[in-house]
Design a protein around this nucleic acid. Sequence first.
RNA 1: GUCCCCAUCGUCUAGUCUGGCUUAGGACGCCGGCCUUUCAAGCCGGUAACACGGGUUCAAAUCCCGUUGGGGACGCCA
Length: 483
Amino acid sequence: MTDIRVRFAPSPTGYLHIGGLRTALFNWLFARGRHGTFILRIEDTDRDRSTEEAIQAILEGLTWAGLDWDEGPYRQTERLALYRQAAMDLLHSGHAYWCICSPEDLEARRKEAQAKGEPVKYDGRCRNRGILSPDQPAALRFKSPQEGQIIFDDLIKGTIAFDSAVLDDLIILRSNGYPTYNFSVVVDDALMRISHVIRGDDHVNNTPRQIPIFQALGYPIPQFAHLPMILGADKTRLSKRHGATSVLAYRDMGYMPEALVNYLVRLGWSHGDQEIFSRQEMIELFDFKHVQKAPAVFNPDKLRWMNAHYLRTSDPKRVAALLEPLLRKAGYDDHDFARIPGGIEALIPPLRERSETLLDFVSGAEPYLRETITLDETAARKYLTPAIVPSLKKFAERLEAAPAFTKEELERIVHSVLEEDGLKLSKLAQPLRVALTGRTVSPGIYEVMQLLGKRRTIERIRRGIAFAQTVASPGQRTETSDG
RNA sequence: GUCCCCAUCGUCUAGUCUGGCUUAGGACGCCGGCCUUUCAAGCCGGUAACACGGGUUCAAAUCCCGUUGGGGACGCCA
């Protein structure tokens, strides 16, 4: 059995996007599940569009997602001598030839062919010119086979056949000496002994052009697995038009990497009815047999649901670790974190039932992180009324005198007030909630009080009482009345 | 236009290879209910699909052909 060696080979012309992450994930899963090697290779042979920032963004995205690589990152621009050597070998063995057609000429001919409805391919006019040492800018072209068929068995799509007649002689070395994609991939996949080429199915058409190059170079042909594309809601290829497609943008929007990865693994792959997969399960269960052949539409709603699920079921420590940088980014610091008995971690259980993203935690945590709050006007007017003041007062007094600040004790006090004042819990809970958080929506009031601590709990109730009394004064009433 | 690939609820999908077990299952979303201290979460129920037309067969979502529709590729980009 040959070693499993796979690679993820992004071109650093932009950020790492959702589709790229999924391709990387499937490669990684395949390698990890078969004791294989996962190689990272940066395809930066396009000098004009490749950037260092993009490389960093790709590495950062993969790392965030938890996809670690065993070899690399290799950079093709550091391997140029290898491609040139291979190209010269091809020239000398008669598999390649110099072409002096200018890019402008080629472009013009392409347009003409397109307009006439003729096949758009290089006409091979330099093929028999036998140029040995060009004295003008020249590109090296590969002699593609002209007859027969090129057939390969795709692990996902099955047997795919192309007539060699549709192939033209592709350029393998640009006139600037840089290799082109179709050539450098083959050389690297061959040299790196890649056993399985797992990539997006936008590369299906490149495969019959690459296979003859493997053969001409004298290397074995790897297995191919072409993943279907990810589409946007309008069924066109996922792009910026569909909103956020950058992996790092999802991190910044408060998504957990395990949620994104789980969502992505189910986009095109399945294992019966199972939706939730641990890292280990994915590794063990992933196979090409259950990879879909048709493209899949990216569904942000399901991703959100998945994220909410992970938020609710993950270890609070884990969630807290991911949340902290977002809180800091929002302007909070250690001083704020220290206000909460139990720190950031204590926020997780109460808030996670109400959060779909970590950003929801950021806004939900505000009342507990700050020393004081601003009351929501509408909520305060509605619930902090003179009628509830006596009960609030009674509650605050008893709380102050209470021997402990446990949930049981809080519950006991609340119920004693309820009973004496003949109130239903909801009648007291909502005013308390508004006084304590400034809002109508929050975790349970006992949890809220625990997050606030005794001092802030009492202070906020007193402020709530003050508000209710201010509103009760005749002047205020007139002022705020809308008739 | 040429070439390649694909086709189950709105979306992700099970089932298709190895036809009958399917009144086509699950998930997201949506709708309703329960629970309830607000909002959620959770639980229960509902909504909704085999693109179409021909074959083959006792029997087809499952096999074959065609049509239609969709995606991808046609660069000295990757």
